[in-house]
Lab assay of single mutants.
Amino acid sequence: ALNRGDKVRIKRTESYWYGDVGTVASVEKSGILYPVIVRFDRVNYNGFSGSASGVNTNNFAENELELVQAAA
């Protein structure tokens, strides 16, 4: 299972961040479909780089994520 702070690569092909590595911000335990919230260094097309207006978190299912580096 994934944990907060883990570095993960995104495998959801239609995602803006496909192939990117993000950090797990939190994992919901309530049984929702996309329980893993991942935070990225770059914002998506809703904002400009360096601006706070873009979105830099997204929810994924565990099977859409590949663990790159476990949290220390």
Rank of each mutant, 00 (worst) to 15 (best):
A1N: 10
L2T: 02
L2D: 00
L2P: 03
L2Y: 14
L2V: 06
L2G: 01
L2Q: 01
L2F: 14
L2I: 09
N3R: 14
N3Q: 13
N3C: 15
R4Q: 12
R4K: 11
R4N: 06
R4C: 12
R4T: 10
G5S: 01
G5T: 02
G5H: 04
G5C: 11
D6E: 02
K7Y: 06
K7T: 07
K7I: 10
V8L: 03
V8T: 00
V8D: 03
V8G: 01
R9S: 04
R9D: 02
R9P: 01
R9F: 06
R9T: 05
R9Y: 06
R9V: 08
I10Q: 01
I10W: 02
I10P: 02
K11S: 04
K11A: 06
K11W: 14
R12V: 06
R12W: 04
R12S: 06
T13M: 14
T13R: 13
T13E: 10
T13D: 04
T13C: 13
E14S: 14
E14R: 08
E14Y: 10
E14V: 15
E14P: 05
E14N: 13
S15A: 01
S15N: 03
S15L: 07
S15C: 11
S15G: 02
Y16V: 05
W17C: 04
W17D: 15
W17F: 04
W17V: 01
W17L: 01
W17Y: 05
W17I: 01
Y18G: 01
Y18V: 03
Y18L: 02
Y18Q: 02
G19A: 05
G19M: 12
G19H: 04
G19P: 01
G19I: 04
G19T: 03
G19R: 05
D20N: 06
D20T: 07
D20M: 09
D20E: 10
D20I: 08
V21I: 13
V21R: 00
V21D: 01
V21C: 06
V21W: 03
G22F: 03
G22N: 01
G22T: 02
G22D: 02
G22K: 00
T23R: 04
T23P: 00
V24G: 01
V24K: 00
V24S: 01
V24F: 03
A25C: 15
A25N: 06
A25D: 14
A25I: 15
A25F: 13
A25P: 02
S26F: 14
S26T: 07
S26M: 08
S26K: 13
S26H: 15
S26G: 12
S26A: 14
S26N: 11
V27C: 04
V27S: 02
V27D: 02
V27R: 02
E28A: 12
E28L: 15
K29I: 09
K29Q: 12
K29D: 10
K29F: 07
K29Y: 09
K29W: 10
K29M: 10
S30K: 11
S30T: 14
S30E: 12
S30L: 07
S30W: 10
S30N: 10
S30R: 11
S30Y: 08
S30Q: 08
S30F: 09
G31M: 10
G31L: 13
G31N: 14
G31F: 12
G31K: 08
G31H: 11
G31I: 10
I32L: 08
I32D: 12
I32M: 11
I32V: 10
I32W: 09
I32A: 14
L33R: 14
L33K: 11
L33A: 13
Y34P: 05
Y34I: 03
Y34N: 08
Y34S: 04
Y34G: 04
Y34L: 10
Y34K: 10
Y34W: 08
P35F: 15
P35M: 15
P35Y: 14
P35W: 14
P35R: 13
P35E: 11
V36A: 00
V36K: 00
V36D: 00
V36W: 04
I37A: 07
I37L: 15
I37P: 00
I37D: 02
I37E: 08
I37H: 07
V38A: 00
V38Y: 00
V38L: 00
V38G: 00
V38T: 00
R39W: 08
R39M: 12
R39V: 14
R39L: 14
R39K: 10
R39T: 08
F40T: 00
F40S: 00
F40K: 00
F40W: 00
F40C: 03
F40Y: 01
D41H: 13
D41K: 09
R42E: 07
R42N: 07
R42V: 06
R42H: 06
V43H: 08
V43L: 08
V43D: 07
V43G: 05
N44I: 09
N44H: 11
N44S: 06
N44T: 05
N44D: 14
Y45T: 15
Y45L: 15
Y45K: 15
Y45N: 15
N46R: 03
N46W: 08
N46I: 07
N46S: 09
G47V: 08
G47E: 15
G47P: 15
G47H: 11
G47I: 07
G47N: 14
G47T: 09
G47F: 07
F48L: 11
F48S: 14
F48M: 14
F48H: 14
F48N: 14
S49G: 12
S49V: 08
S49E: 15
S49K: 06
S49A: 09
G50F: 07
S51H: 07
S51D: 12
S51L: 09
S51E: 12
A52S: 11
A52C: 15
A52Y: 10
A52D: 13
A52L: 10
S53W: 08
S53K: 07
S53P: 10
S53M: 11
G54Q: 04
G54S: 05
G54E: 06
G54R: 04
G54H: 06
G54F: 06
G54D: 05
G54Y: 06
V55F: 10
V55S: 10
V55Y: 09
V55H: 09
V55M: 08
V55P: 05
N56D: 12
N56R: 08
N56I: 07
N56F: 08
N56V: 06
N56M: 07
N56S: 07
T57M: 10
T57I: 11
T57W: 14
N58R: 06
N58P: 03
N58V: 09
N58I: 07
N58F: 10
N58L: 06
N59Q: 07
N59E: 06
N59C: 14
N59P: 08
N59D: 05
F60R: 01
F60N: 01
F60I: 00
A61H: 08
A61F: 06
A61Q: 07
A61W: 05
E62R: 14
E62C: 12
N63V: 08
N63P: 05
N63D: 14
N63I: 09
N63T: 13
E64H: 02
E64K: 00
E64T: 02
L65S: 03
L65R: 03
L65G: 00
L65Q: 01
E66C: 06
E66G: 02
E66M: 05
E66Q: 06
E66A: 05
E66S: 04
L67D: 00
L67W: 04
L67R: 05
V68E: 03
V68I: 10
V68F: 04
V68H: 02
V68A: 03
V68C: 06
V68T: 04
Q69Y: 09
Q69T: 11
Q69K: 08
Q69F: 09
A70L: 09
A70N: 06
A70M: 10
A70K: 13
A70T: 08
A71I: 09
A71E: 10
A71T: 08
A71Y: 14
A72K: 12
A72R: 10
A72Y: 12
A72L: 11
A72C: 14
A72I: 14
